[in-house]
Design a protein around this nucleic acid. Sequence first.
DNA 1: GTATTGATTTGGACTTTGTCTAATGTCTGG
DNA 2: CCAGACATTAGACAAAGTCCAAATCAATAC
Lengths: 129, 129
Amino acid sequence: MVGLLRSHDINPTHQRIEIAYVLFSRQEHLSADQVMALVNTHHSETSKATVYNTLKLFVEKGLVRELIVDPSKVFYDPNTHPHHHLYEINTGKLSDIGAEYMQVSGLPPLPAGTVIEGIDLIVRVRRAS
Amino acid sequence: MVGLLRSHDINPTHQRIEIAYVLFSRQEHLSADQVMALVNTHHSETSKATVYNTLKLFVEKGLVRELIVDPSKVFYDPNTHPHHHLYEINTGKLSDIGAEYMQVSGLPPLPAGTVIEGIDLIVRVRRAS
DNA sequence: GTATTGATTTGGACTTTGTCTAATGTCTGG
DNA sequence: CCAGACATTAGACAAAGTCCAAATCAATAC
């Protein structure tokens, strides 16, 4: 874990290691709230501000991917390999779609002076009524 | 405008007409906040609750499309034809990508009992540094 | 060991977006 | 003109996230 952080140019402090561990030990999409809860399961150790700071740092350093899918909260995905997402509207459940299932082709003209940061493909499903 | 609402099975009240007008007269992506401000430019006419209620109704009835792209607010898109979106991370600016520029192929296995509600393709760009 | 210094963490106040509720207003068919 | 259904409203509330100044920590210098 320490090595992973160092290799992404992140100073491995106690709190950062804890948060990275929570994200990478289970391969799930977690919200800041959930990270907060998981890090502090035993005794409260890490503040809300630190959790938010750290997640932002991880995103900047490319350690995790930020998912903007749920209208009310951001999710963080420890898997940074190319893949897509499936979101169940009713439940808020989020799961992966392997890159082999769906492909994106073509690129739009970009506004002058901008570069692509990422391409998000999200399949939204609803429970059939 | 009244006809448009009726054709989507929406009772055309004064407030709904105003809100629809704001959305459809300019072809832009607006947040609830912006709709609120635009509807109430002259004298305050429409409450926050109504704006939110109405936008939700419009989405349910398929009159506008809900865009979850910005981490802090939902945008509403009066264009319901198939197209994609380009989001400038630095500025929060959102623009359309014509369906002809990018294509999505393939479909993932869906969880049992669910149907596709929509597929969102978002290109995120950042100002080159 | 102790001091220094910059980086990190923290509690808590604050902001923003959106929801909820109970009361009120409006419209329509008979 | 009345009943009932539907729509709107103000304002309280909730949840997610930001901000800031103070406290703490970690690493190095001496």
